[in-house]
Nucleic acid binder design. Sequence first.
DNA 1: TATTGTTATACTCTATAACTATA
DNA 2: TATAGTTATAGAGTATAACAATA
Lengths: 159, 159
Amino acid sequence: MLYSDEVNDSTRPARIGFLLAQLGTHAADVFAEQIQPLGITPSDAGVLRIIGRSPGIAQRQLADKLGALPSRVVALIDKLERAGLAERTRSTTDRRAQELNLTDDGRKLLAELRKAAMAQEREVTNGLTDEQRTQLHDLLATMSHLQGLDADVHPGYRG
Amino acid sequence: MLYSDEVNDSTRPARIGFLLAQLGTHAADVFAEQIQPLGITPSDAGVLRIIGRSPGIAQRQLADKLGALPSRVVALIDKLERAGLAERTRSTTDRRAQELNLTDDGRKLLAELRKAAMAQEREVTNGLTDEQRTQLHDLLATMSHLQGLDADVHPGYRG
DNA sequence: TATTGTTATACTCTATAACTATA
DNA sequence: TATAGTTATAGAGTATAACAATA
């Protein structure tokens, strides 16, 4: 095969970085559609997921995980508290800090979010063979680890 | 193999959809860093790339490609025109439409953007073997095609 | 009538700084 | 003095509607 580049156009290389950004945006869009009926945004979903896995986490720690500013976290938690999904409790060991926890409704909604995530997964991997899915998952997990990204979190999750 | 799910943690599955969104955001962040010295944003870069590949494109077509609103395109082109990177020319065949083209400076900057994209590629795929890169690229390209995404464009490119 | 580009406006998200109460 | 959370404010990006020129 003399011209292995023929399958690609070498002046327009479809690069991994570009494809990741493209597919990442697409995956986030699909997820946003899936959770729209639940009445929360992808940002809210990311916050609920983190609190669910780290009960009692302080707002400052949450801000660091999200890559958001403390002032943004105030607004996010205000909204979740008004919706009855999360609660603030003043820490007894450091009374400056607010400990964050999910309410029962918050935990129920988190379960719905997992279903939405599974629906997203089916839609995004539609048309791939099981072997391709396994390969792709392993490569992405390896890459995420190599790039030093948090296994649970990524900044924003589209919004 | 009775329990093929053992390699994943079924209570916290690192899913493909999640990893794509995480790594896509990361790839976009890396690209944003790479082009910062060039004085343009990722949005601007996406616009320059499209105009470079479709000289004379109308603002409405550009808006469709970007997934942006016509009013947003006005602001984007205003900025690129002020920076001397792109030009508007009233179409002679449809005098409602503005034909968009790059200036010489715009073409020079586009060449710099390609270098930045190559630097992003190296950073994002750092630690992967050549075989892993090939596998990953093929899988992502397949997926992008299956999901009906444009080979050149994705909405926003982080911004 | 419909479409292209434009302006105006509102809402959200991001970023910064100043403030309070604790430490 | 430093930190956690809050408030206020300004700047982007996104969305809608209304408008002028043209089709």
